[in-house]
Amino acid sequence: YLDEFEGLTAGIDGNKRRLFYVDWWTNEEKIKAVEIPAYYEFSGQSLNSIASAQISTIKTQLYAGKALKPSVTVTLNGKKLKAGTDYTVSYANNTKAGSTASVIITGKGNYVGTAIQNFEIAAIPAKGKVYTSGNLKYKVTKSAYKNGTVSVYAPAEKTLTSASVPATVKINGYTFNVTAIGDKAFNGCTKLKKVTIGSKVTTIGKQAFNGCKALTSITVNSKVLKTVGASALKGISAKAVIKVPAAKLSAYQKLFKGKGQKNSVKITK
């Protein structure tokens, strides 16, 4: 009758059902369904509404290339309900990063109704955007949920005295490879004394350490460094020592040659 007559409710009130009857209204010459202000419930059963259940909070999810289906705990009147027996689970809008998705709980067996718990899917940091992590700022060079890349853009504060460029960094929950130190990244950081360059850095940009007059120690952990830009080391301390992997000593001596540093700057293993 719910589909045939207007003005009726869903007939559910907690664990109770409202009654209906159909009658002929002669003064209006049509049949009407009338909702009775009384209730019944099945003997020996408890038809509870899932709508009032407590659903566990879902933390922000990271997109991983497929539909996200986080599990939930459903509790009603202090009782933990069982998936598949007391309710079924479905999902909506759960295939795209940066969206609000939903877990839909639908009553089954002795349980009726539905409940929805929303959750967020973290947006993937966009290419060209700058983010701060620790004492460094990073610029996204490849936006991806997996194997994305960033370059060191600048220090969070110009007054830093040491900097460690990591192999990877987490931004908005996603892991990015740190593959470059950008042009002028540490330009004018006059108090910078020590720098460690991570294992995945392939490029040191132009004037990256220009004017870092207190810089005396540079440790290169990367074995995949391919490019060092013009004037990258211009103005660093004349007493600076650049330590590189032993297997790369000869290659890196050539790579760092003539990048603006004094002849007294040593490149050693």
Results as ranks from 00 to 15, higher is better:
1 Y>L: 05
3 D>N: 13
4 E>R: 00
5 F>V: 00
6 E>W: 12
6 E>Q: 10
6 E>G: 13
13 D>E: 12
26 T>F: 02
26 T>E: 07
26 T>Y: 04
27 N>W: 05
28 E>I: 13
42 F>Q: 13
42 F>W: 15
42 F>C: 02
43 S>I: 08
45 Q>L: 07
47 L>P: 12
49 S>K: 07
50 I>G: 11
51 A>S: 12
54 Q>E: 14
55 I>Y: 01
60 T>V: 11
62 L>T: 03
64 A>R: 15
64 A>S: 10
66 K>T: 12
70 P>C: 06
73 T>K: 02
77 N>C: 12
85 T>E: 06
87 Y>G: 04
91 Y>I: 01
93 N>Q: 06
96 K>P: 13
100 T>L: 15
105 I>C: 11
109 G>R: 07
110 N>T: 15
110 N>V: 06
111 Y>F: 04
112 V>K: 08
113 G>A: 15
114 T>P: 05
115 A>N: 06
116 I>G: 12
119 F>K: 00
121 I>V: 07
129 K>Y: 11
134 G>R: 06
140 V>T: 07
148 G>V: 08
151 S>G: 09
151 S>A: 11
154 A>Q: 04
154 A>F: 02
161 T>A: 14
164 S>D: 09
164 S>Y: 09
165 V>N: 03
167 A>F: 09
170 K>Y: 08
179 T>N: 01
184 K>P: 01
189 C>Y: 00
189 C>I: 00
190 T>S: 14
194 K>S: 02
199 S>P: 07
200 K>W: 06
200 K>G: 07
203 T>P: 03
203 T>C: 04
205 G>M: 01
210 N>E: 15
215 L>A: 03
217 S>G: 03
223 K>A: 14
227 T>N: 06
228 V>T: 05
229 G>A: 01
231 S>T: 07
232 A>Y: 13
232 A>M: 11
232 A>E: 10
237 S>L: 04
237 S>Y: 00
239 K>P: 06
241 V>I: 13
241 V>M: 04
244 V>E: 01
245 P>Q: 02
246 A>S: 13
247 A>R: 01
248 K>R: 08
250 S>H: 00
253 Q>Y: 01
257 K>L: 14
261 Q>N: 06
261 Q>A: 09
261 Q>T: 03
267 I>R: 05
268 T>N: 09
